[in-house]
């Protein structure tokens, strides 16, 4: 099928290639440039309504109970050159026993000043399974202030995996907040991989509320902060239900000087059988890792790059 493509889609695809996502235009289910819908392809099993607003879009997506989509669904939320205020509101409702894997790409083009908010709510039905990969391209020449909020509500036996990846180009002023309510025997796994370069100010906040018996949560963050960057991680776990478990794991790695890092764990248990754990590290790359690689003939800089790229993968 020949696609009649707006040049902005091709530009978006080019951005994705720059961050290592090997995707072609025909693989996209949806492409919006701020509030201009440039491409929308029906996906069997998914009902989606999109309403353009003054500053972005409102999107509501429903996956009916029992529907299993056996290929990844790719959605692009770009701001190629509009700049200014940009607000996306999305709601994803996944029915009982349904399964889906979704890639969302946040693409920010060059030379703009952008104040963007992505507000996402995911409701996952009983025994449903959702994987959500949120991959960003932020052009280095853009002045970015980004707030990404994800609220996930997991019903009994549901599984949710989320990966947020801002590892190439720049992060800008970026704050992300995850809030998860995890029901009985449900599992929520959230990962954030961030790179903060000079002038970037990154805040990652994960809040896991274990509200159902035997609920499970894992929050894992890897933040690399280069010269002159600021980064902060706040991990909160609330063990409210019997035999619930949550582990928060954050490593913040410094590479360079004038870096400010913070790591704030909060573990609150209101049920004596809940178990909450936290593992945090802040510092330079482990000397032993560097030496193990340097013993193979890699210079210190090469070894550092290998370790960093591995952590952010």
């Amino acid at each position: 099928m020949k696609l009649n493509l707006d040049s902005r889609i091709l530009q978006g695809i080019d951005f994705l290639h720059k961050v290592g996502v090997n995707i072609q235009p025909q693989d996209l289910a949806f492409f919006v440039d701020k509030n201009e819908i440039l491409h929308k392809k029906p996906v069997q099993g998914i009902k989606s309504e999109v309403i353009p607003t003054e500053f972005g879009i409102k999107m509501r997506t429903v996956i009916e109970p029992g529907v299993k989509i056996d290929y990844p669904v790719a959605l692009c939320f770009g701001n190629i050159s509009h700049g200014g205020e940009h607000i996306n509101e999305q709601e994803l409702i996944v029915g009982e026993g349904a399964e889906v894997k979704i890639y969302t790409f946040a693409l920010i083009g060059p030379g703009q000043t952008l104040h963007r908010k992505d507000l996402v709510t995911v409701r996952i039905g009983k025994n449903a399974k959702v994987e959500l990969y949120d991959i960003h391209y932020h052009d280095r020449s853009a002045d970015i202030n980004f707030y990404a909020e994800l609220n996930a509500y997991l019903d009994e036996g549901a599984y949710f995996y989320n990966l947020l990846k801002v590892t190439d180009q720049k992060s800008g002023k970026f704050r992300t907040k995850f809030y998860g309510e995890v029901g009985p025997r449900a599992v929520a796994v959230v990962e954030a991989k961030m790179k903060a370069t000079e002038g970037d100010d990154v805040v990652v906040e994960d809040i896991m509320k274990l509200v159902g018996e035997e609920a499970r949560g894992l929050s894992k963050s890897r933040i690399i902060a280069l010269d002159g960057a600021k980064a902060e991680f706040i991990g909160e776990a609330y063990g409210e239900a019997p035999n619930s478990r949550c582990h928060i794991d954050c490593a913040e790695v410094v590479k360079g000087e004038n870096v400010v890092l913070k790591n704030i764990p909060v573990l609150v248990s209101t049920n004596e059988t809940a178990k909450l754990t936290h593992e945090a590290s802040i510092g330079k790359i482990d000397k032993k890792q560097l030496e193990t690689l340097m013993a193979k003939g890699l210079t210190e800089d090469e070894a550092t790059e290998v370790v960093v790229q591995g952590m952010l993968r």
Binding site: D286, Q289, T292, V306, R313
Partner: peptide
Amino acid sequence: FQEPARFEG
């Protein structure tokens, strides 16, 4: 090394 390092990713 006695305890070779481990690498994520």
